[in-house]
Simulated scan of single mutants.
Amino acid sequence: MTGLLRLHRERVQPDWIDYNGHLLDAYYLLIFSNNTTTFMDHIGLGEKERAEKGHSLFTLEVHLNYLREIKVGKETWTDTQVLGWDAKRLHVFYTLYAEDAPEPRATSEQMLMNIDMNQRRSAPFLPEVRARIEPIARAHAGLPRPENVGHVISLPPKK
C-alpha cells in the first residue's frame, strides 16, 4: 500500500446549503465524520465487527480548517492520512476535495480512540485491527506532513 487512502465520496445535498449559498460549516464535519466511518470499515471496525467484537472508535479531538466553499450538488471525496498511532489511538488527517476544482476545500486533524464498548472505556486495538493499521501507518510515515497539522487558533500579538 502506498499513498493516501481515498475511501469516501459524498454528494452535497440541497438541505446542507446555508443562507450564503454554500455548504454549511457543520456539514463539512458531517462529511469528515462519514469518512471516519468508512475508514473504520477499512481497518476492521465496521458495523459487523463492532457488533461481534464490541470495539469502536470515538473522536477525542477535531481541528477543522475551512479553505474554500462547496456548492450544492458537488461530489466530494476525502483523502485520509495516518499521522501516528499507538496501542489505543489514531492521529489522522483528512483533506476534503470537490469535483469542480483541484484545490482542497477543507482539512480536519483528528485524534481517535479505540473503545471497548462493553466497558465504555479505552482499550488497546484488537490484533486484527492493529494488523490493518500497521501497514497503512508504515506507508504514510514517509508522506509529507500536511500544512494544517497542529494549527492553534490565535490572533497575532498587538504591536
Rank of each mutant, 00 (worst) to 15 (best):
A98Q: 04
A141V: 15
A98M: 06
S108W: 11
R9F: 00
E61Y: 06
H55L: 04
A98D: 15
G84W: 14
I43C: 00
W77Q: 07
G21P: 08
R105W: 05
A26F: 13
F125Y: 01
H140F: 06
D100Y: 15
P124C: 12
P135A: 00
S154Q: 10
L30P: 10
L90S: 06
V82G: 08
V129W: 04
D41Q: 12
I133Y: 14
L112C: 06
I136V: 14
A98Y: 01
L29D: 03
H22I: 07
I153P: 05
R145Y: 11
G21L: 13
N118C: 08
K71I: 05
H42L: 01
G73W: 04
A51L: 00
W85M: 14
E134A: 10
K159Y: 15
N148Y: 02
P144W: 15
A141K: 12
N20D: 11
Q13D: 11
P102W: 00
S154E: 09
K71L: 09
D41L: 05
L143R: 12
A137E: 13
H140R: 13
R9L: 06
F58Q: 09
T59C: 03
R9A: 09
L57S: 07
K158S: 07
G73M: 01
D25C: 15
F125T: 00
H8I: 00
A101M: 13
Y66N: 01
L64M: 10
K71R: 03
Q81C: 02
R50L: 05
H151P: 15
K88V: 08
K158D: 08
M117T: 00
